[in-house]
Simulated assay, not measured.
Amino acid sequence: MNGHGYTLIHLTDTHLRHPGELLFGALDTWARTAEALRAAARYRPDAVVVTGDIADCGRDIYAGAAGLFARAGRELGCPVIVLPGNHDVPGTRAWTAEEFTGSRTDTGPGPGDDVHFVGGLRLITLDSDDPGQPAGRLTGEQLHWLDTVLAEPAPDGTVLALHHPPVDSLLPQLAGRGLARPAELAGVLAGTDVRAVLCGHYHHAVSGRLGAVPVWAGPAVSYGQDLLAPPGTVQGVDSSWLSVIRLGEGSFSAVPVPLQPAGAVVFSRNAVHPQTTAHPGAVPAAGTIRSDRPLPEPIRAPGHPYRQQPLLPVAEGEPVAAP
């Protein structure tokens, strides 16, 4: 295990339309996706994982999306790993372009079923779409392939990524729209080195467990679900998010990060390091003590030495920007 663990940036549900075309006539999803990739730089990720619905309504935007993700990968110095969702058309030539699959080390039954390695951490992606059906589905062929891959543990364990969550949404309006027959997947994962399952699809954050494995369904880059919508109503809200995933020795955490201001700042003060307090256990008064110790910087995975990265875009090289 890399002694300092791994940091993944999890993006989902970008819902990209043709450049210049706004989602719902109001949301520039290209700009939101570019902003999410720029914001990822501050967390110095070992990989970016994008869990589907890259396009909105199967629109042919994949060549542009592949270029955007490839530029981000070069600027961030890490792979951007992409898988399809129910709004995508994974069989298109653009989807299988080298930009979407360049870091994979093995392939499965169909487009989107891939294995990637980041240092000693293995990331497996699965296409969970069941065309024409509200719920996602993994075929017997996919489950058998996954079982075969997981038979050999990875040095630092495995993260599984798919679009449809194997846990329920908080909203009854979304009932039956997650992964169908999640127990089948749970049976494959039982006793393996899988440390977490990352998903999207619901457009709101959900945490849960599939057997003993933590599940994180991240909030969307494009827009959010209104969790207080009237019964029987599905209502989108203007919000944009990324998730920061951290994997340590025996630990997993997922933090949703809003990409838009949440409201007015009600306080701002210098952080205080616990060891600068007058005596053990003392709580310092706000603003009375300043720490002279810098915050520790996370160390990148083996094979991915950290280099100082500005927030994107940068003056040199290709900036991450909407087409």
Rank of each mutant, 00 (worst) to 15 (best):
L83I: 10
G110E: 15
E75G: 15
A66F: 06
L83R: 05
V50K: 02
F69C: 03
Y43A: 12
V49Y: 01
G58V: 05
L76C: 06
A55I: 11
R44S: 08
Y43T: 08
D114H: 07
A41T: 14
V118L: 05
G58H: 09
L68A: 06
R74I: 03
G91M: 04
A70N: 09
T33C: 09
P111G: 03
A55G: 12
H87K: 12
G85M: 06
F100K: 00
F100C: 02
P84K: 07
A70Q: 10
R71C: 13
N86T: 14
A65W: 11
R59G: 13
V80L: 08
A40Q: 05
P111V: 13
V49M: 00
G108R: 01
T96G: 12
T96H: 04
D53Y: 13
W95H: 10
A63F: 11
E98N: 08
G85H: 03
I54G: 05
C57P: 00
G73H: 02
G112K: 04
P109Q: 09
A72M: 03
A66N: 09
D53G: 13
I81H: 00
G64R: 15
F117Q: 08
A65Y: 06
F117M: 15
D113R: 01
G67C: 07
D60N: 13
A34P: 14
A72H: 09
L83G: 10
V82W: 01
A65G: 10
R93V: 15
P111I: 04
L76F: 02
H87D: 12
D88G: 04
Y62Q: 12
I54W: 00
V80A: 12
A97F: 04
L37T: 08
R38G: 15
D53W: 14
D46Y: 07
L83K: 01
A94Y: 05
N86A: 12
D46K: 10
A41S: 15
R42P: 11
R44I: 04
P84Y: 07
R74M: 05
P90C: 09
T105R: 11
G110V: 11
T51G: 03
G112Y: 00
G77Y: 10
P109G: 09
R93K: 05
P109T: 15
E75P: 10
T33V: 07
F117Y: 03
G64Q: 10
Y62E: 14
V49N: 00
G67L: 06
G110H: 10
G108F: 06
G85Y: 12
L76W: 09
G77D: 05
G52K: 07
G119K: 11
P45D: 10
T33A: 12
R104Y: 12
R71L: 09
G102K: 10
D88M: 08
V89S: 11
V118Q: 01
A40E: 01
T51K: 06
A63Q: 15
P90G: 08
R38E: 06
P84T: 04
